[in-house]
């Protein structure tokens, strides 16, 4: 579903991403680990066509994202590190707007509420202005927007950073549900614990290079941390 082929991004004098090859299939969660500046966010931005690759290509469902970005964005949903919404609108109104932009103008209020409930946002918050929301609540609206979009691929950029353990756990549950629905998920994260718990595969990145690709089910938590640190310090 998501595929990077020799994907590279160079800026003047520096390489942000170098010959990345990876593939995320429907029903998989691919976790990208790495320090800040390793190229995780660059990868996600390339898939979103926010920036252009220097060489190689990123495809979504076989379609090059630079050739038909509007096509690929119908399939993709994106949840940034900070889900920011229109502060003068309620969760419901924000959801309704983004769903309409995604081409789903037909949702009834009930359906929209169902997306928010499924994302874990309590019913009494639905009609409140999001300017009063915590980060966790906003992340839930972000999930609801992805659900309402009926996205088949999900790009997540450090979605759990700054969430308390309970919210983080709740979030993991949602991702597992989506995986169950056959969504392909690419998640950039610092959270080794979540990566181990959720990931179908884990990629370790450093300085724009994908250094290792692991199957976390074969590793313990300690193993993953050791391997990660090995790659960071060599």
């Amino acid at each position: 579903m998501l595929k990077a082929e020799n994907l590279s991004k160079r800026y003047e004098g520096s390489t942000a991403l170098s010959d990345l090859n990876l593939e995320v299939n429907p029903g998989e969660i691919y976790c990208l680990l790495g320090a800040n500046g390793a190229g995780k966010s660059t990868t996600i931005r390339l898939f979103l066509n926010f920036i252009q690759p220097s060489s190689g290509r990123a495809t979504v469902d076989g379609v090059d994202v630079t050739k038909a970005p509007l096509e690929t964005k119908k399939v993709l949903a994106y949840i940034p590190e900070q889900v920011m919404l229109y502060p003068h609108l309620s969760a419901l109104e924000n959801l309704e707007y983004f769903a309409a932009l995604a081409g789903h103008e037909h949702y009834s209020r009930k359906e929209l509420e169902a997306f928010l409930l499924r994302s874990g946002l309590q019913a009494d918050a639905h009609a409140q202005r999001v300017s009063t929301y915590s980060k966790g609540m906003r992340q839930k609206v972000g999930i609801a927007i992805a659900l309402a979009k009926r996205a088949r691929a999900l790009l997540l950029d450090e979605p759990t950073s700054g969430l308390d353990p309970e919210a983080s756990n709740e979030f993991s549950g949602l991702l597992q549900q989506l995986r169950g629905d056959g969504v392909a998920i690419l998640m950039a994260t610092h959270d080794l614990f979540r990566a181990k718990e959720l990931g179908s595969r884990v990629g370790i990145m450093r300085r724009g290079l994908l250094r290792a690709e692991l199957d976390p089910s074969t590793l313990g938590h300690a193993d993953l941390e050791r391997i990660y640190l090995d790659h960071m310090h060599d």
């Binding site: 509007l70 096509e71 964005k73 994106y78 940034p80 229109y86 983004f98």
Partner: peptide, 14 residues
């Protein structure tokens, strides 16, 4: 600046 541009441009709208 309010952080909505990313979410906005990840939608299929030019």
């Amino acid at each position: 600046e309010q952080g909505t541009l990313g979410l906005l441009l990840s939608q299929p709208i030019s």
